[in-house]
Design a protein around this nucleic acid. Structure first.
Lengths: 225, 225
DNA sequence: CTTGTGCCAAATGTGCACAATTTGTATAAC
DNA sequence: GTTATACAAATTGTGCACATTTGGCACAAG
């Protein structure tokens, strides 16, 4: 079967996105090969593909690691978010319609519901999905793809630098952006978007280092029985 | 030596960017391996890397091709350019200084000089480099990288769809954007940037199909004697 | 002359074995 | 006790041989 590779690719990518794979974790080729029951060469190709997308980092002759973003990386990624979303919002106001606004409202409802029942994992996931929804609304696959790479990296930063007691308070800020969009208020939407990313960035504790490595076999154990 | 791969990578990427590799051209692995004097596996890895960056297209069991962008691709890429550069300009106005403006002026001078002596190849190259310079001025490697991928694809579109007699008139439009930046006129800069990409897009002849394939060996013959 | 079928050549995909590099450890010298 | 060196184990990198798939060509039937 040809799409087994795709399944493994998604499994690893999701593990990074959901923070199950901690920064700094080493991913040895033959260990992954044994876990997923495929040859080492298959794994190899996947890892290089993920590295090309900046989701993993390959150090020659050393191995493949979950990237441990530096403070400079944090600044860079969140600035990229700010710049990128400014462009998205400016374009979005040119083609905003009821269908898009309804989708945004529905998403905000999901976010509120997850926050209401204290589901932190869902909140984190939906928080990223909000920005993806904004971009996807433009219907431009190229822009969506770039944002996906950015999100993959910023979710790593949250899991590395975010203090454990942090409250996920982003829902209101997301709602503010949607409100500004509904009112066709470009300046406010741009300002709120910028501030939103700056808030997330400032909430990070850049002195705090990463945690210990996880058990790979246990991590990927949730596969069809 | 480890950086031989990098050299070959750049050679192929540049060949696409400069339009020496026409859309639709097939890149057979063993043929490239013979041309560059390396093993087929080396080439293989490079091609997959270029494919991950959307610079080449790999069809499973069929081979590797220079992408032949569809009309929908053209719309998508130029919209991505418009959205992306809007964000770039908005951020650039927040950190614009004399050093950046001088670099932009110097670039415009280069463009005018190339246009003056009718050097079409240089004009095309500098035209792309202008937008890259705008983005590079933000000092954000992630944004620069994305733009490079976009440029790689749009240069293909120009070489496929642009009618031969087209005049490279972009210098004035570039100068207009710089002037608006210098005057801190955000609205004008955004408008000129959008219109600029729309002009390029509209100049393309979307009915015109691609040309014939080139001779690979001759194409890559310009290597150290 | 067009269409359908089967075979052959060529190109890509994959696994294996071996080479090269790095890291950790043990030992010895200072 | 610290440092340096050498060796060993483990991990990644590479080339080769073989399997698989595809596209074209020939040939025959309608």
């Amino acid at each position: 079967m040809a799409s087994a590779d795709e399944a493994i690719y998604r499994e690893i990518a999701d593990a990074i996105l959901q923070g199950r794979l901690k920064a700094g974790t080493k991913l040895p080729e033959h260990k992954l090969a044994a876990i997923f029951g495929v040859s080492r060469e298959r794994i190899r190709k996947l890892l290089h593909r993920l590295a090309a997308e900046r989701r993993l980092e390959i150090i020659p002759n050393r191995g493949c690691f979950v990237p441990r973003p530096s403070v400079a990386d944090v600044r860079m990624i969140y600035e990229a978010h700010r710049v990128f979303e400014a462009g998205v919002i400016e374009q979005l106001l040119r083609r905003l319609d009821d269908r898009i606004l309804q989708a945004l409202d529905a998403h905000l409802a999901q976010e509120r519901e997850a926050a209401g029942r204290g589901d932190r994992a869902a909140s984190v996931r939906l928080s990223g999905a909000f920005h993806l929804l904004l971009t996807d609304s433009l219907g431009n696959a190229e822009l969506s793809r770039f944002l996906r790479e950015l999100l993959s990296r910023s979710s790593l930063m949250v899991s590395v630098y975010e203090p454990a007691q942090s409250s996920v308070c982003a829902v209101d800020e997301h709602a503010g952006i949607v409100q500004a969009l509904r009112q066709r208020d470009l300046a406010t939407a741009l300002r709120l978007s910028r501030e939103h990313f700056t808030h997330i960035e400032n909430r990070l504790n850049l002195e705090h280092a990463g945690g210990p490595d996880a058990d790979l076999a246990a991590l990927f154990a949730s596969r069809e029985p």
